[in-house]
């Protein structure tokens, strides 16, 4: 015993799961979606992925240097933001837009607030929305997925939500693509940003996170549930004008938003009750924006709006503490 003993107050053991571990597991959960994006959209998708991921990591490293803070990129959160941002961009995004998006996500979305844990809004969504408003043409130049074509013969195409919206605006009626043939959306045969193509792989990734207990069921279930209920009400009132809940679930960024964006821990409530309110709010806003808003897709806006409400939700959803009121539930007889 020639070396001194460590002294600290209890507990003396730890679960072993660290912040970096959580970030890495989320990245693993996204890998199938990344693979599908590359298979469907070819090399342009890979290019966008690499620019966003490397761009985010580089921006964070630069910020740490400027802010004279320890380098935080080892926690993998910047890389995760980059992957999420890439999944929110079209495959045809120019390199400068992907890079600009990375800078917006990390600098304005995250580091300006003090880095990981302090940002009120999901950084990747901040970047997506800024880009969408600033570069509407580039951000909505969708290409149809052409599996294994390497992307050299990309055909431009509208997203299902965009097609639905313009048809409803022109004719007041749902087009045929919004009433049948949903299986192709499920597998991913639709135009959209890199992470919008396949609901299936995103669902698998989400289930992986639930199984690993990285996320809890509260936000995904309340988000999906409220979309189904609210979209269902509209659909039942006029099925020729409003698409079915299933169409809402399988198209656009809903699955990506439900499992990977809305569940972002930093920007969502910390209590179970708060998470349920948050998820319901996301679902409600998503459907309302999709059906009545100016944009065909509402997931990003819905989540950002609910991000803004998170501190308020947290404040009003504190659980009743143990012994806070008289309790008697029977127990062992």
């Amino acid at each position: 015993m020639d070396k001194a003993l460590y002294l600290s107050s209890s507990p003396h053991i730890h679960s072993g799961l660290t912040t970096a571990g959580i970030m890495r597991l989320v990245i693993y959960a996204l890998l199938p979606a990344v693979a599908v994006a590359i298979v469907f959209f070819g090399l342009p998708a890979l290019k966008v992925m690499l620019i966003c991921t490397l761009g985010c990591v580089a921006c964070e490293a630069l910020c740490c240097k400027l802010m004279k803070q320890p380098l935080s990129i080892r926690d993998s959160s910047a890389a995760l933001t980059g992957i999420l941002l890439a999944l929110n961009l079209p495959a045809s995004s120019p390199w400068w837009m992907a890079l600009l998006g990375s800078a917006i996500a990390i600098v304005i979305g995250k580091m300006i607030f003090g880095g990981l844990g302090y940002n009120p809004f999901n950084p990747a969504l901040v970047a997506r929305v800024v880009l969408l408003i600033s570069f509407p043409v580039q951000m909505t130049s969708w290409t149809a997925p052409t599996p294994l074509s390497m992307g050299f013969d990309a055909v431009s195409s509208a997203t299902p939500l965009g097609e639905m919206k313009s048809a409803v605006m022109l004719t007041g009626q749902l087009p045929e693509m919004a009433t049948s043939g949903f299986d192709r959306y499920f597998y991913g045969l639709m135009a959209g940003s890199l992470g919008e193509v396949s609901a299936l792989v995103l669902l698998l990734g989400g289930l992986f996170l639930l199984w690993k207990k990285i996320i809890t069921w509260h936000i995904p279930v309340s988000f999906i549930g409220s979309v189904v209920v609210i979209a269902g009400v509209f659909w039942l009132t006029d099925p020729t004008r409003y698409p079915s809940p299933l169409f809402h679930l399988l198209t656009g960024g809903l699955m990506l938003g439900v499992f990977f964006m809305a569940t972002d821990m930093v920007t969502s409530p910390i209590t179970a009750k708060g998470m349920l309110i948050f998820g319901c709010g996301c679902g409600l806003l998503t459907v309302l924006i999709r059906l009545f808003g100016g944009y065909p897709e509402g997931v990003s806006f819905a989540i950002l709006l609910m991000n803004a409400a998170t501190p308020l939700i947290d404040r009003y959803t504190r659980a009743e503490i143990y012994g806070g009121h008289h309790h008697d539930r029977g127990g062992v007889q």
């Binding site: 460590y6 003396h12 053991i13 730890h14 660290t18 912040t19 959580i22 926690d75 003090g114 880095g115 990981l116 844990g117 302090y118 809890t216 821990m265 930093v266 920007t267 969502s268 409530p269 910390i270 209590t271 998470m275």
Partner: peptide
């Protein structure tokens, strides 16, 4: 003995 340096709270709950 775990000697990990504390990081920022990520509000994971």
């Amino acid at each position: 003995v775990s000697l990990a340096k504390p990081g920022p709270c990520i509000r994971c709950g």
